[in-house]
Design a binder for these strands. Structure first.
Lengths: 353, 353
DNA sequence: AATATTTGCACAAACGATTGTGATTACGTA
DNA sequence: TACGTAATCACAATCGTTTGTGCAAATATT
């Protein structure tokens, strides 16, 4: 190590000061240093003060790696999301970061790019980094969850958010998507619409099932029939939204309102509607889902359902902390369900409030 | 450790299998295991095969923490960005992640939220995690760079991207903002505009200085005077764009084109223009910067300058790898300058190509 | 055949922090 | 005075890898 001792280095000794350095300086053992810094009861107040003071003076920076190695787990939190662009996941991640930092954890973010294989690699990478916990939102195509057995059996706390494995009992924080679908559709009906269509997401994903179900709930409540022809399944892209909307417009009896399961898909629908010369919301009212940033830019601005993204991230971290706190009940399933909020804008507002 | 040995565990032995386990099984030393796995020349091919095979069979997962501790640096790359929402930084981060993963590094992402104090905390956190390198884009308000001395003197490779410390000699990958400002303004002039205004960013940030300078270059080339009244300084928000545009419209001789230093600010300008009953681009042509996603949504769609974000991320990682490779020349300054690309859309297109 | 060289592997000491156990001192009470 | 208790701190092992050095056997050189 040529670095050690060179005067060009920041640290006086030529290397980061360690507990051993503090110990030598103070004529005590590293045990005392370690315990003083972690406020252990077996260290006298006078000693603690001395240690703290010297640590500050020498600018001691704890080596988390060593600590992590010793106790078998780091202060790192692994996060896997499908992608990070767009408001939703970016905000969730932001919430995660805030809460994690506050609790003394750092966050490693991986993107699966909606690819299961990549998701598997991410999990491996994160486990390899000895993360203290894993916060995961599944890739769209993930239907097989074997790669999470590794995590569970290793004892690493695992929390899913938003996109959770269907039919598995896991720790999760999710939105009440059904309520979201309901309030959105209910709102469209309250605007006087009577043929409300739904552009749905992939059938196998629980969040889209929920939104669809909420849509059906609202129709039922109003005594309206559930017309299968009014439901278009999509893959949630803008292009899908365009295709779906064209299909719906081609119907013998086209809809007078559309509840889209996502904002991108709603955007596609909006563009087709405008291209077709239809007025929104006068001819067709439109509502999306997620409250993306661009809902404020479209003309008309897009009614959407806010998911309280940052809150979701914070809740996920809280759940992880709970899990980590009592590792005695690793099998207890925890669930947090957040309530959605309807943001009404011009795309659906026929009757000014 | 109650976990060790319980049959409920994933790993046969009740704990992750270590090199020691492999060594015991094969009757060799951990040295051999370590060297076999890293393909060291001093291990015979036969032994290597045996080790590799057993490692696969027992599903050996290296403990990166231990390795990092031993060699004094991890396979983690620290990234600090002002924020992660919006296309630009999200894409850069994506590029970073791709390149880093390919090189066997994991990425820790921190957001400074445009706050210097938070930026300082981030740096400390990342150094505490023993990152192998640091990739940083500065917070808007950062003008004092003392917190990076710590990094430099510790010998941790440091690469800035996009937002770099003005007047300091550092490793950086940046966009040729001057060229970006030039091609954008030049394009507006080519459309026949003669009074081109500029909504600029904070004066102290090099990227905005560059865009401004490029704007001036183009004017000069066309023999047009640089009218100070036509330059509005902003803080790059949408609201700033609205204010600036109003100011420009209030001029005795208002502009017939606007080159905005960012898309958000351009969006604000666009909305003011439309509210004022002016046609874009017929009355006022408009161009933004960054090629954000929403430039495709506005009406008319917004001309902008693409920064090749992912490329920037990849370049930053490459530079880090270079730096890490020959730590002998830690002081050699490296610079990569990416070329911008003008994306012409309806907001500036007066003469169809 | 004797010596020089290479090949293949083991020993053991790190890296820096944590922690169960035990030793020492000081204080209190009987 | 004698003994129990509490308060303080040190010893030493440990987490899993890496790596300089050393030793033996195998191969090559003369």
């Amino acid at each position: 190590m040529a670095r050690r001792g060179t005067s060009d280095d920041y640290f006086p000794g030529g290397a980061p000061v360690s507990m051993a350095d503090l110990a030598r300086e103070l004529g005590v053992s590293t045990t005392t240093i370690s315990r003083a810094l972690s406020d252990h009861h077996s260290i006298g107040p006078a000693t603690k003060q001395k240690v703290l003071k010297l640590a500050k003076k020498l600018n001691y920076q704890p080596n988390h790696l060593a600590a992590a190695l010793r106790r078998g787990q780091s202060r790192l939190l692994g996060v896997v999301v499908p992608y990070i662009e767009g408001r939703f996941f970016a905000s969730v991640v932001h919430g995660i970061e805030q809460a994690a930092t506050k609790a003394g954890y750092s966050v490693i973010i991986c993107q699966s790019s909606e690819d299961v294989a990549q998701e598997r690699r991410n999990i491996d990478t994160l486990l390899g980094a000895q993360v203290a916990g894993l916060l995961v939102s599944l890739a769209r195509e993930t239907r097989d969850f074997k790669h999470f057995d590794k995590v569970r059996k290793r004892g690493t706390p695992l929390v899913f958010f938003d996109r959770t494995p269907a039919g598995e009992s896991v720790n999760a924080v999710v939105l009440n998507d059904r309520a979201g679908g309901y309030i959105s559709t209910q709102h469209l009906l309250a605007q006087g619409c009577r043929r409300v269509a739904h552009i749905a997401g992939p059938r196998h994903m629980s969040i889209y099932q929920g939104r669809h179900q909420g849509y059906l709930d609202a129709l039922a409540e109003h005594g309206l029939p559930a017309d299968d022809a009014l439901v278009a399944y999509s893959n949630m892209t803008q292009g899908d939204g365009e295709r779906s909307m064209r299909d719906l417009l081609a119907l013998p009896n086209p809809p007078d309102a559309v509840f889209a399961a996502g904002d991108s898909v709603a955007l596609g629908a909006l563009q087709v509607l405008k291209a077709a010369g239809l007025r929104v919301p006068a001819d067709v009212a439109l509502a999306g889902f997620s409250n993306e940033g661009f809902t404020l830019i479209t003309e008309p601005r897009l009614t959407s359902v806010d998911q309280h993204c940052e809150e979701m991230g914070q809740a996920a971290v809280r759940m992880f902390l709970d899990l980590a706190a009592d590792a005695r009940h690793p099998s207890a399933q925890r669930q947090v369900v957040l309530q959605p909020e309807l943001i009404v804008r011009e795309s659906s507002l026929r009757r000014p409030a």
